[in-house]
Design a protein around this nucleic acid. Structure first.
Length: 223
DNA sequence: TCAAGGATCCGCT
DNA sequence: GCGGATCCTTGAA
């Protein structure tokens, strides 16, 4: 079962509440990776000066104006990819940035993918450094494997080519699944979004970052 | 065409 | 705690 598209076709903060605690699943030949979504940021409308939709519809952000439940993956700082879930009804530009998940299944595949991403990013062929990278990632706690937006995409092996994938389609290799029915909706805190100082007020202060607070290693909402 | 700058992470201090 | 990496997207010329 996948997440109902209707749950994402809502005002973005309501959609985000429903997405907290849900599962991000990548399932293909190499195996199955599952992460519990514990941190999201909402980018809402063309007025939001922090949103990629602030200049109106462009080639890059077009999916943000489309159907809810579609993946929007972009490149930031020339090297990191970020996964977003399109929210709001079709025609309203909005997306939810997946900032953090907690691995539940396939942590070994996530480690492999993290190492592979680093190897791909290295310009040279320094085998000593490659060994250090592999050791560093092997030493990470499971919860650290996907502790940031660029790390989620690295661990799940995602890049811009995943833009447009329907996360509500059970046939997609990348999809969203609701939490088990016996798992109550998680408690969460709201705080300002990260890394958007350029947007100015009131956008930098909008409490549009939602963080689950029942995780043992949940980051502080204001951090 | 061009120049500017970014929804981040890592390594070194 | 800070600066560098790195390339794509954007608005302006």
């Amino acid at each position: 079962m996948t997440m109902a598209r209707d749950d994402l076709a809502l005002p973005s903060l309501e959609a985000a509440r429903r997405l907290l605690g849900a599962r991000l699943v990548r399932d293909d030949r190499s195996g199955r990776r599952v992460g519990r979504i514990v941190e999201l940021e909402a980018y809402i409308g063309t007025d939001d000066r922090a949103s990629h939709a602030r200049f109106g519809r462009t080639a890059r952000n077009a999916v943000m104006f489309g159907r809810p439940g579609i993946a929007y993956v972009y490149l930031v700082y020339g090297m990191h990819h970020c996964l977003n879930v399109v929210s709001e009804p079709e025609g309203r530009a909005a997306a939810l940035l997946v900032r953090r998940v907690v691995p539940l299944e396939g942590a070994h595949l996530m480690r492999e993918a993290r190492v592979a991403r680093l190897r791909a990013a290295r310009r040279d062929d320094d085998t000593d450094r490659a060994r250090r990278d592999a050791r560093r990632i092997a030493a990470l706690a499971t919860s650290e494997l996907t502790d940031g937006p660029g790390l989620v995409t690295a661990a799940f092996g995602l890049d811009r080519s995943w833009t447009g994938v329907d996360l509500c389609d059970p046939a997609s290799s990348l999809r969203l699944e609701p939490a088990p029915s016996d798992e109550p909706p998680p408690p969460f805190a709201a705080g300002p979004r990260v890394g958007i100082a350029y947007a100015g007020e009131p956008w930098t202060s909008r409490p549009w970052r939602l963080t689950v607070t029942d995780e043992p290693f949940a980051p502080r909402p204001s951090a």
